[in-house]
Write a protein that binds this DNA or RNA. Structure first.
Lengths: 213, 213
DNA sequence: ATCTTGAACGAACATTTGTTCTATAAAAAC
DNA sequence: GTTTTTATAGAACAAATGTTCGTTCAAGAT
């Protein structure tokens, strides 16, 4: 971070004061008046610099879309992720549809740093029940962060519902000419081959969290 | 404060999530989409009720002028954890001494929710190099949150330096009458037995984080 | 049955507010 | 000196966004 000009420091201070004062971020015109600046474009100009230097984050086209990055109020990016259930062999996952998405409805939520979810939409969490997925390096009690998607890239780990076997499992998915290969994360384990119609993708794994002590 | 309708509770929850998520309050239309409501006037109507009941404060004519008056249940804080190096079989861990402890000095830091570290002191992170620890359900690239301790409880997973073998590894530690049992996390794997003098505890594992996609 | 009330709907409207463009001046670089 | 960069001004535009209004519908109340 480079040193800021007096005007830029003034702007940062004003934003923070406005923020704690009123409970919402200022507009560019608020800053114009609050800092005795004569034009919105001057503020815009300096806000761009502040963003480049990493002091704030601007959200384009969003009114009051100024986020303080060096803020004590809401440190960093925290995301509430709903823990919507558990995954275990033999049980389907109660995956929420995008419109019934409701953090409040889920009894439990997990608070994680935004960079863990990488600010993706439709992220939920599952508790892993049973040790049937150790070959994917996921153990009983682990929490998997999932993203609701219908298709996955080759090689991505996904939650898969095997229709015939009536089993849910976590595996890496590879599309092959006439079949689908489900590869455990542990290279010493043998893959499973099955028909495309038999697999139903319920989401992809974006992170695994295991809390121990 | 009167009891809120499900819809009103939903709106409150959404505002709170939006707020912690994005760093600024939602617009009425954000709430419309986020809560599956079909008209802005319905939100307006309910926001008025929420203001009358004292849950929020509205600022007329101000975009995103919604202020939450009720504090989030547990405004979880975030902790900066230094990533001080990597653990791999064959290499000792560069464990920091308590006085050379310096978050700022480490080139990399990891931001995690406070409840992951459970607000413990002396927490650091290691990147796992190589797949020599798959039997402990830890893979190449995983990040282990460690706490700097010299002794561990029976059954806790710890980073262990085996003097004779000149190897670092993650295992569950059990003290037995004349020896120490190092048990992989995978119950199908066999334990290692060694003498107490041969093991040097470099810290205990309090969490494992694996970021995939 | 009729009237009231809480709740929701959808559209139209007016204001707020971010963005952009041109012009100007001072400072720095050449 | 001239040119380039940095910073500021002001205005106009377009998008975002709060507000309002007529209407509908269901549930009680009279």
């Amino acid at each position: 971070m480079k040193a800021l000009s007096p005007k830029q420091q003034h702007i940062i201070d004003f934003i923070r004061r406005f923020w704690t004062d009123r409970g919402y971020p200022p507009t560019i015109r608020d800053i114009v008046h609050g800092c005795g600046i004569s034009s919105t474009s001057v503020v815009d100009y300096n806000l761009d610099i502040l963003e480049k230097e990493g002091y704030i984050r601007r959200h384009p086209e969003i009114s009051r879309g100024i986020e303080l990055l060096t803020r004590p109020p809401t440190l960093g990016h925290q995301v509430q992720v709903p823990v919507i259930g558990q995954i275990a062999a033999g049980e389907p996952i109660p995956v929420p549809t995008p419109d019934t998405w409701d953090v409040a409805a889920s009894s439990e939520t997990l608070q994680v740093s935004g960079d863990l979810t990488r600010d993706r939409e439709g992220v939920y969490a599952l508790k892993v029940k049973g040790s049937s997925m150790v070959d994917a390096l996921v153990n009983d009690g682990d929490i998997v962060l999932m993203q609701y998607v219908n298709v996955v890239e080759n090689g991505e780990m996904a939650a898969i519902w095997l229709r015939a076997e009536k089993e849910a499992t976590l595996k890496k998915v590879y599309r092959e000419p006439d079949r689908i290969r489900l590869q455990p994360a542990n290279s010493q384990m043998k893959p499973i081959y099955t028909e495309p119609d038999n697999v139903e993708i319920q989401g992809r794994v974006i992170a695994v969290i295991r809390q121990l002590a």
